[in-house]
């Protein structure tokens, strides 16, 4: 039986209009990685447990692996690919680089997007606020200390 054509979804992706076909049951993670080729957003678990897929929807951190693409209609979606400006690292990317906040790098896109969500709400978070904002993001390499230092450095960077 031929599958019906997938409806088009419209949202702002990293500041640009985006129209992409996605079935009702398509997950945002799948659409980003497999249809749009934006593989910066990672899949680290069976769903909801690791935070590697964290993106911003309307400026708020959300998990792309539990979000249907159809939920994003008319909204803004931001991924790690939107962090760099004109080929230059964003402030969080730069801080993670300089403070050794990334080792294998698998958790890093999700960490940076969760931290970006925090910095939008709170321009100078303390360590407790950073820990709370990153509570859902697992890292198996760094021990988290360098990640927290990186977010503090990025916040100080304005």
């Amino acid at each position: 039986m031929p599958m019906p054509p997938e409806p088009m979804r419209h949202f702002q992706l990293n500041g640009r209009d985006c129209a992409v076909p996605a079935a009702d049951h398509a997950l945002l993670l799948e659409t980003l990685r497999e249809t749009l080729g934006l593989t910066g957003t990672k899949q680290g678990c069976d769903g909801g447990e690791c935070g590697a897929c964290t993106v911003l929807i309307d400026g708020v951190a959300r998990l792309a692996c539990l979000t249907r693409t159809g939920e994003c209609e008319g909204r803004t979606v931001e991924t790690i690919e939107g962090q760099g400006v004109a080929g230059r690292l964003g402030r969080l990317q730069r801080a993670f680089h300089e403070k050794l906040g990334a080792q294998c790098g698998y958790c890093t896109p999700g960490m940076i997007m969760a931290a970006e969500g925090l910095l939008r709400r709170n321009r100078s978070p303390d360590e407790a606020a950073i820990r709370a904002a990153l509570a859902g993001n697992l890292c198996r390499c760094t021990g988290y200390v360098k990640i927290i230092e990186a977010v503090l450095a990025a916040a100080a960077d304005g």
Binding site: G48, L63, G117
Partner: peptide, 9 residues
């Protein structure tokens, strides 16, 4: 409950 990205949804 869970983490901020869960609680937002």
């Amino acid at each position: 409950v869970a983490a901020p990205a869960h609680r937002a949804a």
